[in-house]
């Protein structure tokens, strides 16, 4: 697929502590915070009706559970390959949001990584990063 530019965030799933303890294993039933996985806004028609990236001008291909994407932190160039384990993020809730590091920016949340995946390319305390997804 052509490279997609946007924002990457992180989310917890699977067995966990604190407020994350109630979120479950995701739409694919396999999601765990400690695994190299991600959520994608268009895993099914039902998923797309929730996430609605189109409302932010984003057209994302249908990709189902297990599909592998590579996410690159555009601030550092670090990249990680992960597989789809959930539906998300809910892109339309934050249409037009922009995250930058210097002159490098990404707009709209288009992918969520698990904590283990996100922490391999950036600090969890950042919450959002500009990213390229292939």
């Amino acid at each position: 697929m052509a490279a997609l530019y946007g924002e990457v965030s992180w989310f917890c799933c699977g067995n966990s502590w604190g407020p994350c303890g109630t979120v479950g294993k995701g739409a694919c039933g396999t999601c765990n915070s400690g695994s190299r996985q991600h959520a994608w806004p268009n895993t099914s028609a039902a998923c797309l009706t929730i996430t609605r990236p189109d409302r932010c001008g984003e057209t994302l291909a249908r990709r189902t559970c297990g599909h592998v994407h590579t996410t690159t932190n555009r601030c550092t160039g670090k990249a990680i390959a992960t597989s789809i384990a959930d539906c998300g993020p809910q892109t339309d809730l934050f249409c037009g949001e922009r995250t930058c590091c210097g002159s490098v920016c990404g707009s709209n949340r288009v992918i969520d990584l698990t904590p283990s995946a996100y922490s391999a390319i950036g600090s969890l305390s950042t919450g959002l990063l500009p990213a390229m997804i292939t």
């Binding site: 400690g34 190299r36 992960t82 283990s116 922490s119």
Partner: peptide, 8 residues
Amino acid sequence: PGDPDPNF
């Protein structure tokens, strides 16, 4: 991809 990360 998809596997548990031993470094986490």
